[in-house]
Design a binder for these strands. Structure first.
Lengths: 204, 204
DNA sequence: GAAATTCTGTCACTCACTGACAACTGTCGT
DNA sequence: ACGACAGTTGTCAGTGAGTGACAGAATTTC
């Protein structure tokens, strides 16, 4: 028996190590850049062996993007929670804006975005991670469209576009020189996205 | 002086080495898979040193995607050549379908697609390469929209979506079990893309 | 043919990442 | 409290990607 609510010492220690690694990595990445930082440096900063680093994260990209992962999960949950009947793009817009607004208070979030936009390796890794969750997104999109993702390819199609589009959209917006709260950027990016693909509009 | 029309021996030799490397790499990738193939094996197959390999290509992904690069270039040229006034998505559809149709006779094209869809590392690398040409695409999109990409963020936004969307769309379609000529896949993917994002349609 | 270019191979190195094994540290039953 | 057990960690050794430096070979130019 035992745990009076909290987990055992072992669990707590692991969580602390993990957090410390994320923290140290993030700091070093911001200071020296992603590629210029070595695993050895990260491990040394936390006083663990480099081997241990790889027991917590599968790669250098993995530490950097562990925060982004939480965010993707949050967006998907929010997407699932949008009222039925909403167009897919509209629902995703609402989900993304909501989550970004919730996160933008944290300083680490902004610096992570900056990190990703500067490092092609990180940007690629993020896309790769997104692709790994393609089926999950397709399921949600399929549910919203009222079709079975196993039989109809459209949900997968739309899902892959949404996955690829959301993040670059914000980055592109920022690259264009607009500086504003992330949540606003995201919303406007979606607006322009919907309008821009049909430009000049085929119908009205 | 000299070159009676053909380039010098040195140039020809370089071109041949380059082609041989692409060829050997492609064959090995198809036989053993992308990650399971080492640079040493590729180099040995062509009888050059591994160091020389890196004088022709910057990475393992680079050899694999050298063919895909030609294709992207072709698509962009075709996109630029579409009649003005066409909606951006429509123009890109026509460009992509045309190019894919032109390429699908080559066997290597199909196997490259298969390779990419199987290897996350390759898929990520392709996105990365596409992103490197973002500005180029944005220029073309901006021209079609009649706005200045330097002042208006929309072209960049639309460009990044187009870049990210085109290839995954085809892959997703194929993953859904549809087997048909690439050109048809591409066309249908675009059709569903346009419809799916607005599903259920907001207007009409 | 000699000199200047340009390619190429060899060597030595860094860094990401992995398997194996031994030492250590919480955990749990008694 | 103690010992068996399981999970965690460090060390070691190794593979593979990718890079800089230098010397020698091939090509081009004169």
């Amino acid at each position: 028996m035992v745990n009076g609510g909290t987990d055992g010492l072992r669990e707590r220690k692991k969580r602390r190590t993990r957090e410390a690694l994320i923290d140290a990595a993030h700091t070093l990445f911001c200071e020296k850049g992603f590629e210029a930082t070595t695993i050895d440096e990260i491990a040394e900063a936390v006083e663990v062996s480099p081997r241990t680093f790889f027991r917590y994260f599968t790669s250098k990209e993995d530490v950097a993007l562990s925060l982004a992962d939480e965010q993707i999960t949050a967006v998907l949950e929010a997407f699932a929670g949008q009222p039925a009947g909403l167009p897919v793009l509209t629902a995703m817009r609402a989900a993304a804006v909501g989550v970004v607004r919730a996160y933008e208070a944290e300083a680490r979030f902004g610096s992570l975005q900056r990190l990703i936009s500067v490092s092609p390796a990180l940007a690629a890794a993020r896309v790769e991670r997104g692709a790994a969750r393609l089926d999950e997104v397709a399921r949600l999109v399929g549910a919203r469209m009222g079709v079975d993702p196993a039989a109809d390819p459209r949900p997968h199609l739309v899902a892959s576009v949404l996955l690829c589009a959301v993040q670059p959209a914000v980055v592109a917006w920022r690259a264009a020189g607009r500086e504003a709260p992330e949540s606003e950027l995201t919303g406007q990016a979606f607006d322009l996205l919907a309008a821009g693909l049909d430009y000049p509009a085929a119908s009205g």
